[in-house]
Every structure is written in C-alpha cells, then in structure tokens.
Nucleic acid binder design. Structure first.
Lengths: 295, 295
DNA sequence: TTTCAGTTGAAAGGTGAGCTATCATCTATG
DNA sequence: CATAGATGATAGCTCACCTTTCAACTGAAA
C-alpha cells in the first residue's frame, strides 16, 4: 500500500503550486522560498504539463485558481500543513529539551559541579541533566548532547574535540606512600581486568603488566575508595582525584607514570543546537584553567 | 499563516524517511523511488542532522524507528498520503474525462462526422464530445483537448500540427454561376466585416477589398445558406462545402482565388494523454485521403 | 497621457542537491 | 562457513532546479 512516487509529480513543483495557490501570486510564493518568480512559474508550468491541466488563470495582477487548481490546492494545503506541523513540533520539542551531558562520575564531581554555577550565571535558562557513566555509552542512542570521555579519540560516528589533558598518576593511601619500607612491586593495582588503557599506560611506563598483581573491583568509584583504604595502587588522571589529593586521602605514589590522560568533548555528528554549543564553549574556555592547576 | 519552508528540511529527505519508516528498510524504500539504497541512507542522515535527532536504529537486517522517528513518521505518512491521494484523484478524473474536440460546425459535419464510426471501430472506449465553434476560442481555458482551426498557425502557447489544406473557393448558387450574363463585380461577398483572412485572400487574388460590396451575416452557416439562395458569393475552403457541391446547391464561381485554406490540429502545450494522442493519430492518417479528393 | 511599480512569460546558462558506483562490514540463514 | 542481503562511507557525476535577463502587460499614481 505504499505510495507510487514514480507516477506523481515532483514535490518541489507541488510545493511551489501550493504556495502560489495560497498567495495568489507567483512572485509572492517565490519570496517565501527565497527564490525568483521564474522558478515558481517554471515549477507550476511543469506541474500543469505533468497533469495535462491548466491550474491557474494568469493575469498581470497575479494568478487565480481554475476549478481543477483549487481542487488540487485544497488537499495540498492540508497535506503540507500536516507535514510542516509534524516537523515543527519535533523541532520545538527538541529545542526545549534539557541539555543532556554524560561524564564519568568523578569528572562531574571534581571538575564540572564546582564550576557549574559560573555557567548558569551566563545561561540561566539552560537546563542541564548529567548522566554519570563510566562505560563509553553510545551518546547518540541515548539521546545525549555531550559526552566527556577519557581515552583516545576519535570515536567512529561522533564529533570529537580535545578538552583537557591531565597526567596519569599512580596513587595510594598516605599510610602506604609515607611508609619508606614499602615494596611497590608487591602492592596490587586496582585496575579492571578488561580495560586496556591502564595496562598500556603501565607498560609505557616500564612496568610489565604480566608481572603485577591486579584486583578488579568493577568500577572506578570503588577503586578509589579501596585505594583510600590502603588496598592497593590506583591509576587515575590527576584531575579526577584532585579532591582526594587535597583532602589528603590519597597521595601520589613514587612510581612515575609515562602517560597522560586526554579528555575529549564528544558530540553527535550533527551541528549542535544553541544550548549545546554554549555549553561546549564554556567547557573549552575552562580548559586552560584546569590544565594550569593540573601539573 | 503560510508555512516557513526555509526552516524545514528538504521534502526529498522527508519523503525518503517516510518510505524507509513504512518499509522498515532503506533498500526497500530506495526501490520504491527507483534509486539506490545509498541515496535513501544519505537523505535520512541529512534529515537526522537537520533535526539533531536519531530517527532510526540501524542493524544489518534493516532499520527500526526510534521514539522520535515514529512520532515524525506518523504525521508524515498521513501528510504524504493526502498529497498523493489528491494528485491521483485529479489524474484519474482527468484520464477518464471524455475527449473534448472543437472545430467549426462545417468541418465537423462534412469531415469528421462521416468518418467518426471508423475511429470508434478502433477505439470503442473513447468518448468524444464535439464543441462547434467558429470563433478561435481559447482551447486551454475551455479545457479542450484538440482544436481544428483554419487560419495561419502557430498560435502562441499552443502546440500546432499541420492537418490538411484545401483550396479556397468563391462559390455561389447554380442560378448565378450558370448565368453567363452575370456581372460578378456587382455580386456582394457574404463575408464578415471584421474577419481579416477573407479580405487578405481576396486581395491576394487581385480583388480590391474596398471596391466590392460585402454583406456581414454574422456566421458561416448563414453565409452558406444565403449563398445557396443566390444572395451572393461565399468564400470557403472547398473541403467545408463539399456537401453542398455534391448536392449541387452551390457551384464554384468563375473567380479564381489564389489562397489555400490551411487546417491545423491544435492542442495544449503539454504531452497529450493517450486518448488525445489516438485521436490525433487517426486524424492525421485521414489527411491524405481528404487532400486526394480535395483538388 | 505618461510613468512607475508590480505582475507574468520565455529562454539561456550555472550549480549544487541528490544520485550512482563502489567498496567495506555485519548478520541471519541454509 | 559461505552466501544473500542489509547498512555505512565516500568520491564523483548529472540533471533538476535555480538565476539571470529581457519583454510584455496592467493598474495606479503623477
């Protein structure tokens, strides 16, 4: 029951006709599409030829529908109006939708939340919802506007901007770090079994991943808690544990890590709507400030 | 309250999306427009970018609408269906409409009607309505499919085909023609005051239009009747008065006329629908036969 | 009456939206 | 495990659609 478009005239022609019918003038119709009168006249002529019917009476003062013309116009007007209305409704809904941002929980807590009031000073009307996620969720499928991701970009099908960099650190509880007798090679690393970047960072730093003990706690929040309790070594971007460093609950262990965590602002492939663009601009303006205190 | 098309996505993209939504497959949608799957995929992607929304979940087995996608699809389906339906209704009406032919009354009587049964032998399903008209009426405005016109073509805005030619004759009642004592310069010409081609034909034949008497009877049928009654000279294409010549009610007067009446098949500028084309073909096949007996 | 502003028509030429062609990838299915 | 049929990506072509330009017509204003 699908429509057989091969036998129907071009939609451009139908739209031109509809506009001309409603305005009663080719010139005025042309203005509503930002084209010339000649373009509309050609489309209407083509439509008349396709149908084998005269749709307008022409005169020097404008055009007037024939009987057949007004019959056609009546259905086209409602059809196009329906379409336009449907699209506009979706656009409005989309425009007024709150900004949806996804980051790791730590990044949100230690970087975004302390500064978010500054953003709202500039854009009090923009509603933002944060979705913490450690997994690299599919932004587009989840209807997210912005993701902040650590790792190596770019990701396929997503637009990807450099955000900030932060040195990766090996961290542990002060009780361990302040103990000069610790044999670090015996301290377990609290890193996931499956994740790759942690092991790469270690091997880049001259640590053989096969020779170390690891404990997989399943999520970064637990890893940090466990690290604070002295269970082992935590591998994190400094920027993510700044709160713990400040509080003294974690200290940088004397194990140099030759790796830098790069954070990216990731967006869907299309041009961001204005609130999204505003938030991205604000984030990027933040970057130098973050990096300055970061090293 | 006209629609602002500048903010709406391209209709091509909307149509592609609608078809994909209904079929659940880019490839199948593509087939319904005779395009490739890539064309549809591009249009849908462009639409998604325009709206900043994901409309389909893609998989290797086809596509599935997202929530937003199905919302959009619902209004598009009805909108496009309305449009298609409106156009198709008009096309059907137009297709089944009887053939409308306009000729002079004489031409219809002496040329068409005697042979029309032959046409219906070939096309029994084509209904024809004849509108006799001596005035060069506007074919298109009157919704005519075919006109047969004498005079000089082409006419602006109309398609024009040569049909037949017939010598123009000066004719009078036998009582006059057979009377050797008639002074033809004193016999009035039964021609309209306003028409131009009759006077041109006369002056082409060496007859000064200002030196003759004329009587304007208002229409050709009356002119011929009056001619048969001996009221004066009639100027007609031979093909138009063949019936009178055969019956002996009019005879060719001994006044040579250096003019040939040319008949044209005139149609609206667009491609004729099948019944129209059939009738034109039949008419043109008739032409040699008419010319053969004509001179 | 003349001018002017605004309409439509016609035709030549330019250009970008939309298409094809092609290759790669993925997944059900036999 | 190979095949059929789906989607994605992209380079490049082409024609549908547009602009440009000129001419004719009309009604209102000067």
């Amino acid at each position: 029951m699908a429509i057989d478009w091969t036998k129907l005239p071009s939609l451009t022609a139908l739209r031109a006709f509809e506009a001309a019918a409603q305005t009663g003038s080719f010139s005025q119709a042309a203005r509503s599409f930002n084209v010339t009168h000649a373009a509309v006249a050609q489309q209407v002529r083509a439509l008349e030829e396709h149908l084998g019917l005269k749709l307008f009476e022409r005169s020097a003062r404008g055009v007037q529908l024939t009987a057949e013309g007004s019959e056609l116009a009546r259905t086209l007007v409602t059809g196009f109006a329906l379409i336009a209305q449907g699209v506009e409704a979706l656009q409005d809904k989309n425009r007024n939708r709150p900004l949806r941002v996804t980051t790791t929980a730590f990044f949100a807590e230690s970087v975004i939340f302390p500064r978010i009031t500054d953003f709202w000073k500039q854009h009090s009307d923009i509603e933002i919802s944060f979705t913490p996620s450690d997994e690299p969720i599919d932004l587009v499928a989840q209807g997210m506007d912005i993701g902040i991701r650590a790792g190596r970009g770019p990701w396929p099908g997503l637009r990807c901007l450099d955000f900030v960099q932060s040195p990766t650190r090996a961290l542990a509880a002060p009780s361990l770090v302040d103990d000069p007798g610790v044999d670090w090679s015996q301290v377990p690393w609290l890193i996931p079994d499956s994740s790759t970047w942690e092991r790469e960072a270690l091997s880049q730093s001259g640590i053989d991943a096969r020779q170390i003990k690891t404990v997989d706690l399943g999520n970064p929040a637990l890893e940090i808690r466990a690290g604070e309790e002295g269970m082992g070594l935590v591998l994190e971007a400094e920027i993510d544990v700044r709160a713990q460093l400040a509080a003294g609950s974690l200290k940088i262990a004397p194990i140099p890590i030759a790796h830098v965590s790069r954070f990216f602002i990731v967006t869907p492939p299309w041009t961001p709507r204005p609130p999204v663009a505003a938030f991205i601009a604000w984030l990027r303006a933040l970057a130098p400030q973050l990096s300055a205190t970061g090293d």
